[in-house]
Design a protein around this nucleic acid. Structure first.
Lengths: 204, 204, 204, 204
DNA sequence: TATGAATGAGGGTTCATTCAT
DNA sequence: TATGAATGAACCCTCATTCAT
């Protein structure tokens, strides 16, 4: 129960400023090169530390990834879920959610989100379960919002699971191709996708 | 530059039967564990070869991945693109394309497709460009089909690029969550997604 | 079931000539500096190999120690136990055993024996159990020989366990102080200890 | 060369109360896991200190081992040698010595003794010489006691060196196998060994 | 075609130790 | 006295690759 332990992390909870900076740096690298292809050496150097020095702030490489992903999930929940759960109309809720979600992915802000998406099978064991549980919660939220909309007669009778995953695919695939300097602005993408997802491609 | 090299493959062209079998085996492993996490040792063993023996059939690990991906693209083009390019009605063409594409992902057939999707940033340099060019061709095909449908007044005026990537997200994200033994059959997923993508979520 | 596995070791069984040489070299180093203080680097260098090359012959450092100890136990059983188990008179048997045992320790032959004695608590888990079981067999052999001698009225009524461990202490402690070039020859030590152990220190 | 150093210890001389407690704690760990396998981190933690804090009390890990061993030798000399040097009859002296020595090893009291015995080759250089010199003194004491007994006609004519090392082997090997909760009490072991060593195994 | 042997580079991690505060 | 931060060196081990046979 010494000070070091206290200040560092309470298991993926809040971290010291320095630790936060390290997570940030590590996320940038892992996002760019992939988890497996990014060495601790490299991360340490990017942090202005030696490999050994880096280990004052993290427990292991795996744990570092978990911390990054946890932070990413925090970010997502704060910037997406928390912003929309209060919306009463389930269709408006889903539309707002899609907008927030696309923006989160398109804005350069969040390498963490990209990492969560790309390294979806990297973490195994307890750590993997921890992250997957939080992802699952999002799927459930989407499913139940769709179901609620169906019950209210606001949307057509579709399978909520298929709809949820179609929603996610539409929104998250973006990380694979979107370029901030490309011909499409993030708003164009968000608006276009909402329009498509809710109104469909075909003429009415 | 020995005889073996000459006979082997003309760089992602047709391969000998034995080489084909090796690609198959390697794909299974890489699909299951990821490229970086799959060792040459492991691959060699699974092929009933020693590491050194394996190198008679492939040039390098990177090249092996390229070969797998190229084969995956062949497969995709043969089983998806080739089946639908002939369809005159652009909407029917896109619907058939989506059906074929979802099926390709859901059916266990093609670990190669999964690898192409997951390792989308692993290959760098010339090899990466080669694959990306073929992917781009698919995007262009989707975009122009959408544009054609718009021109004919069959679908609403949407941004063809956004539509193409929404199409892709909807269809390809499936590899991240679909389980063959899950509660949804592959047909349910394909039909559900076509329905959603073309008719939209909201009531008309 | 490839050739490599076949030729190498059938789990601490017979080893290839090269492997034998490596065990020999490693034993010399570990004997001199202790297991924990001897690096794989060092061992590899002494074998004229790189670290990576060394790993073609061994599985791990722990396994290397196990192999050395197993070989030492083989040596011991062959040069001590096997030579004396056939002797009918239990007292003569124990005397011969002591002679052989002292010689084994004093002769420079066997760094392996020294390692077994010194690193008696280093190996844990299954490997440790394996070696300990063989040691225990030796203790049992001594105990039952003593008991047999008591039953025949050849030796005084003493606790066989105490006698067995006194025997072992007398004989094995030698490894801690004996120097081949010292003032005492190995025969003097062996004879002196047999005399002492069986006749006792005090005048009769 | 700060104030702390000055006050601390005059190299294996008397230590402050706090230092004593640290030696005690460190000895417990080193005894249980071995010198090489015990980390400074671990020791510091067990002392309720950080690694850096620990270094206010010790100079180095090697020096810590020396201090423990020195303290062990103090203990031994006080509890064994000092208790028996005054005994006039050399045979009684040796018997008492054996009794005290066995007890010292069997009683859990002294991890330090176990460390001295087990890590007999760990300390090198000046530190190693220092401890070995004290050990040698014990051997000389045993040798001369035996010689004295021979001169007085109390024991048979044996080589005093062999007798001394047989004595030590008998008595010290105990640390390798004795368990406080085993079937033999420490008194049984001590009595049995004295009986054996002085009267011999064979019937008279 | 296929092998065992071998390697250089690097993997993540831990070590005892130092030092400004 | 005691700390957190930091380090260089070393830890055991695995990697993709090469090459004589």
């Amino acid at each position: 129960m010494n000070a070091a332990t206290k200040r560092r992390r309470d298991d993926t909870g809040t971290a010291s400023l320095r630790t936060q900076a390290i997570l940030e740096t590590a996320a940038k690298l892992i996002c760019a090169k992939g988890y497996a292809a990014t060495g601790m050496q490299e991360i340490a150097e990017a942090c202005g530390l030696t490999k050994a020095g880096l280990y004052h702030y993290i427990e292991s490489k795996e744990n570092l990834l978990l911390a990054i992903m946890s932070y990413g999930m925090d970010l997502f929940e704060e910037q997406v879920l928390l912003q929309v759960v209060g919306i009463e109309d389930p269709v408006e809720r889903l539309k707002a959610c899609m907008a927030k979600n696309v923006t989160l992915v398109t804005r350069g802000w969040s390498k963490e989100i990209t990492i969560i998406l790309h390294e979806h099978a990297t973490l195994t064991g307890a750590a993997g379960k921890q992250i997957n549980a939080r992802k699952k919660r999002y799927v459930r939220f989407l499913e139940s919002s769709v179901q609620e909309a169906i019950d209210r007669g606001l949307v057509r009778k579709v399978d909520p699971t298929v709809a949820a995953y179609a929603f996610l695919g539409t929104v998250l695939w973006v990380y694979k191709w979107f370029l901030p300097e490309g011909k499409l602005s993030d708003e164009q993408v968000a608006d276009g996708m909402i329009d498509l997802f809710f109104k469909g491609l075909e003429v009415r």
